[in-house]
Design a protein around this nucleic acid. Structure first.
Lengths: 239, 239
DNA sequence: CGACGGATTGAAGCACCTCAACGGGAGTGG
DNA sequence: CCACTCCCGTTGAGGTGCTTCAATCCGTCG
């Protein structure tokens, strides 16, 4: 998302968004102080625990959200229970890119998550009144589209090993715990990984074990890992 | 795309876009006569034959396009030759949704195709100057994103039968030859179908044969078919 | 008519799935 | 503090859906 970041106006210490860690990533980042203050005033800050549903597919799309902390998954269920996760939302990501009346996917919290919630009607007014916000929203949509299409390649043509390797690399770009360390956070369950990669949980587990045995990665707890051989992982991800 | 159509201004008979069959679908549809005339003047009309490359992945994204007739495929090649088609572009569709410097996918003509070509720089100027165009572009991006995510579900979780059934239904919505007839055009090769559905050509062929044998569809030539049992096809597509 | 490319059909293989058992850390209660 | 349980993850063995390899068909074009 860094590629769509713009320059960020300074905020006074009493501003409601002053301590927002992701303002420079989020769509709100393009608004100057007064506009942002009014914008933020249109909706509350909400919190969800793991497993909580933020929006349900087929729900009326009455609100849009900006994720400030935590992790969400976007998923769809087939009638017989098969599930596909279309993507994960990280802090700074926007939830609600649609021109339809209803959401197409369910959004659920994977980790404890905090979001800024905006009524869609007010949000649309703001977008219409602030061209730079509209532009930013388009940039975000274009970025998400590119990511979704990249995922199409993974699901349509990559092997299990390639999928898992690609996923771990993606995480290393998004979840590098502390800068300077090579340790990467693995914030979702194996089930979520499997449903994102179009695999079964056992296959994901086997592939991770395989990468570990090949000394490409190293598990540092069940929720984190370290990339030992980055070049090899890149190579495995590409096919 | 009908869902993102807006009201269309009338054009005088000598307007360069007067006879454009897809103006009401395309992004240009929101521009009024004079603006559209000036907009169209920024770039030529170009034509491609089947197999021709319109843009190559990693090419500098110097131009954007609006497809007025024909059919394009958006694809990506893995190093070893595996190919995934991320989507097809039908008349009225827009090519060039990106904020990056380079295209992420190759666009090639599947059928003889005509496009309006616009230099990106001039196009961006127009977008900045015409808020309704920007809005429309966002709507198009949101629509494409929803379609791509729907395709993720297909590739990640659907069986071969479900994939082919879903595809035929999609085509019946896009390529119904003449209104009133139930005949549907099948404008791409089996290879393209396979690379779009994440299957091999033999599997696609087998599935089509199966649907034919089950009297769900009926082949009316190698490039067209008819849906015999729509309810059954819907059911097969859903799983 | 003969050759070519796309499509179909058949037979065998394999990557991933299914089913099943086991392991280990976290939380609970005695 | 330890025993118990639960849940998630791991590992193993066997099955299957799609792929791979190969042969044939068929419409098109020289």
């Amino acid at each position: 998302m860094a590629s769509v970041a713009a320059k960020i106006p300074e905020l006074e210490p009493d501003h409601p968004c002053f301590s927002c860690a992701v303002r420079e990533l989020a769509v709100c980042g393009v608004l100057e102080s007064a506009a942002l203050r009014a914008f933020k005033a249109t909706g509350p800050t909400v919190h969800y625990e793991p497993g909580d549903t933020v929006v349900f597919e087929a729900d009326n799309a009455a609100n849009v959200y900006s994720l400030t902390s935590g992790l969400l998954r976007l998923s769809k269920l087939l009638p017989d229970g098969r599930r596909q996760i279309a993507g994960f939302l990280f802090p700074g990501d926007f939830l609600g890119i649609t021109m339809e009346e209803e959401h197409a996917f369910t959004a659920e919290a994977v980790a404890p998550s905090t979001l800024c919630k905006f009524p869609r009607v007010r949000f649309d007014e703001y977008v219409a009144a602030h061209p730079q916000l509209e532009r930013r929203l388009y940039a975000v949509a274009a970025h998400e589209l590119a990511a979704a299409r990249q995922q199409l390649v993974l699901l349509g043509r990559k092997t299990a090993t390639e999928r898992v390797a690609s996923f771990l690399l993606m995480l290393s770009g998004r979840c590098s715990a502390g800068l300077g360390t090579t340790e990467v956070d693995l914030p979702m369950s194996r089930i979520d990984m499997a449903d994102y990669l179009g695999l079964r949980i056992e296959t994901v587990s086997r592939e991770i074990s395989g990468l570990k045995a090949a000394r490409v990665i190293q598990l540092t707890g069940r929720q984190s890992f370290r990339i030992v051989d980055r070049a090899r992982l890149d190579q495995l991800a590409e096919g």
